[in-house]
Design a protein around this nucleic acid. Structure first.
Lengths: 231, 231
DNA sequence: TCGAGCACCGGATCATTGATCCGGTGAATG
DNA sequence: CATTCACCGGATCAATGATCCGGTGCTCGA
C-alpha cells in the first residue's frame, strides 16, 4: 500500500465531479433510456460506489434536472446575422428539436420545471428575438409559448414512436387499426401509423404556420390580431 | 361465519373490477399526483389487498395506460352541426386541453403510446374532420400532428407551472430571474413567470394561427403551400 | 516534520415499491 | 354433495433511492 498510487486513479478514472456524473448520466440515458437509469448503475459506470454520488448530488432528481439542462447546451444559439427574425427563430427551434430527438428520454422529462442556465439562455434568445421583431403582448407570450409547446409536443410525440426501433409495437398498432377499420376509417386510411410520411416536413409546415401567424400580428400595427380574422 | 355476508361486501365495497380499479386510480392521481400512485395505496383505497389488483391488471403500467385513456372519455366529440370544420376542431382541441389541465398528471404520461379506444376515437374525429374540410397531404399529417402537438405541449407546460399551488417554486424562480436580470434581460422583463398573463388567450391565439395556416393550404387549391409564402 | 482538518469515498443497512408464489374461500354448477 | 373456478390476500423476493457512519489520503499551518 505504500506504493499504490491511489486506488481510484489506478482504474484510470479522473476524480469524480458533478460534471462527470452528469455527463455519464446523459450517456447512460442515451444508451438505455430513462427507466434504466439507476444510481447504482450510474455509479458502476463511473467506477465508484453508489453512495458516493450522493456527495456530489442531493437526489436522483438532481441528476435528471442536470442532465436535461446539459443537453440543451447542444442547441446552438444563432448569431443575429441579419437573416431576419424568422430565420433566427427557425434555426433555434430546429436545433431544439434536433436535440430532443437525439436524446429521446428528454421528452418525457420535460414535465419538470426547466430553470437551468442553458435552458434559460435559449428562452432568453427567443424572447429577445421576438421583442426585436416587434411582437407585443398578448402576441408575445402566445408566440413564445406557442413555439415552445409546438417543439415540445412534437418531440414528445416522435420520441414515443421512434421510427427505428419498436418495429414490433408499430406493426401491432397498425394491425390493430386495420382490424378495426370500420370504427376508425380515416385513421386506418390516412393515419400516422399508416402514412409513414416524414415527420420533418410536417414539422416544418406547422412551424411556418405559427411564424406566419406571428408575423401577421406584427405587420398589422396593433389593434385586433391580424391573422385571427376568422373564427 | 355462518352468518357473515361475505367479508368484502360487509365493507360496503362493490366487487372489484378493472373498471373500478381504473376509476379509483384516476381519483388517486387527481388527488395526489403521479408519483404517489402505488399499487399498495391504490389497493388500500379500494379496500383490498394489494396483490389482488394483479388479478385484474397485469402491471402497474397497465393501470396508467387505462387511466390515461379513461380521462379522454371526458372529451366530448363535437357533433358536426354545420358550424364548420374550424369550430368543430376548435371544440375538440379545447375539450382536450381542458381534460389535460383537469388531470395534470396526464401530461407527464403522454410519452407512452396512446392506443386506447377513447384516444383513437378522438383522433379519428380529427382526421375525419380535416379530410372533410379538404385538407390533403402533406398538409393533413402536418395539421393533425401540429394540432395534437400543440395541445400536448401546452398541457405539459402548464401542468408544470400550476398557477394555484407551488407558489413557493414560482416565487423562487421569479426571484432567480430577477437577480440575474443582466443575463436574462428579456425574460426578466417580459418572461412567463413575470407576466402572469392568462394561458387561455395565449393558447387560443396560437390555435388560430395553426388553423389559419391549415385553411390557407385548403383554399389555395394544391400546389405550393398557401400560407408558407415567406421563409 | 507532523498531526489536525477536510474533501471525498463506500460498505452496510433501511424503507418503499413492483411483482410473484401459493394457499385460501365461497358461490355456482352438474 | 363434490368439484370447479373466479377471485382474493399474506408472505416474500429483488431492485431501488437514500442515509449512517466509519474510513482514507491529501493539504496546510505550526
Amino acid at each position: 500500500m505504500w506504493l499504490r498510487p491511489s486506488a481510484r486513479r489506478e482504474r484510470g478514472a479522473p476524480p469524480l465531479s458533478r460534471d462527470r456524473i452528469v455527463q455519464e448520466a446523459v450517456a447512460l440515458l442515451d444508451a438505455e433510456g430513462a427507466d434504466r437509469l439507476t444510481m447504482r448503475r450510474l455509479a458502476e459506470r463511473l467506477g465508484t460506489g453508489s453512495t458516493t454520488l450522493y456527495w456530489h448530488v442531493k437526489t436522483k432528481d438532481d441528476v435528471l434536472d442536470l442532465a436535461l439542462d446539459a443537453i440543451f447546451a447542444e442547441v446552438e444559439i444563432p448569431q443575429k446575422s441579419g437573416e431576419g427574425w424568422r430565420a433566427d427563430i427557425t434555426a433555434l427551434i430546429n436545433g431544439w428539436r434536433a436535440v430532443l430527438l437525439r436524446h429521446p428520454w428528454s421528452a418525457a422529462l420535460l414535465s419538470r420545471p426547466m430553470l437551468g442556465p442553458n435552458v434559460l439562455a435559449r428562452s432568453e434568445f427567443l424572447y429577445a428575438t421576438l421583442l426585436a421583431a416587434g411582437v407585443v403582448e398578448p402576441h408575445l407570450t402566445a408566440a413564445a409559448y406557442g413555439l415552445s409547446n409546438y417543439v415540445i409536443g412534437s418531440g414528445l410525440m416522435q420520441a414515443t414512436w421512434p421510427a427505428d426501433a419498436e418495429q414490433e409495437v408499430r406493426r401491432a398498432a397498425r394491425e390493430h387499426l386495420q382490424s378495426n377499420r370500420e370504427r376508425y376509417p380515416a385513421l386506418a386510411a390516412h393515419g400516422p401509423l399508416v402514412a409513414e410520411g416524414d415527420w420533418d416536413t410536417g414539422f416544418a409546415l406547422g412551424l411556418t404556420w405559427l411564424l406566419d401567424g406571428i408575423q401577421a400580428g406584427v405587420t398589422d400595427a396593433g389593434g385586433t390580431a391580424g391573422g385571427a380574422a376568422r373564427a
